[in-house]
């Protein structure tokens, strides 16, 4: 895993993919790690990227897609510049995260898993971030916010351009 980097300069997909695969010594066992790396640098996994991975790593396209569509960390659609994750784990649930999700959903006019048309926000839900004592928890661009009030959220969203 790597930290989120700024949007990379446009390079050919095949070059990007081959570089990453080389970093992982062409090791097929590292398929998930390779996809995680690509997800974090590209923000999402396009059909083109996954086809390249399949060809260059010589893993069936079916296996690549099975993995890419199975795990929550991967996105098969472009995502917004700001990712908002609402935790729906049990502890957060008991402390009112569904209502928090409703509030955020109404504020951003987005349903869970949707991205705003201007590509500013993507709203997602997660099933437990392990931050259970502090719930309900919302993560905005990797920063954790615990028990945020509607006005906290409004400020946060306004400052995210």
């Amino acid at each position: 895993m790597v930290s989120r980097t700024k949007s990379p300069k446009p390079t050919k997909v095949s070059t990007t993919v081959s570089k990453v695969i080389r970093n992982y010594q062409q090791d097929k066992d590292k398929l998930i790690q390779i996809l995680l790396y690509l997800q974090s640098t590209l923000g999402w996994l396009s059909r083109e990227v996954l086809t390249e991975v399949s060809e260059q790593l010589q893993v069936p396209i079916t296996q690549v897609y099975q993995i890419a569509s199975y795990y929550k960390a991967f996105s098969l659609m472009p995502r917004g510049r700001h990712i908002i994750k609402v935790c729906l784990g049990t502890a957060c649930q008991v402390r009112g995260s569904p209502r928090l999700l409703d509030t955020i959903s109404a504020m951003l006019n987005l349903k869970p898993c949707e991205t705003s048309e201007d590509m500013r926000f993507t709203l997602e839900t997660v099933n437990c971030l392990g931050c259970c004592a502090m719930g309900p928890v919302v993560v905005v661009d990797e920063t954790y916010h615990t028990k945020p009030s509607p006005s906290d959220l409004r400020k946060l969203f306004e400052s995210a351009k």
Partner: peptide
């Protein structure tokens, strides 16, 4: 041939 596969969970 790997022409058909599973997706999603």
């Amino acid at each position: 041939e790997h022409a058909i596969g599973f997706v999603g969970r």
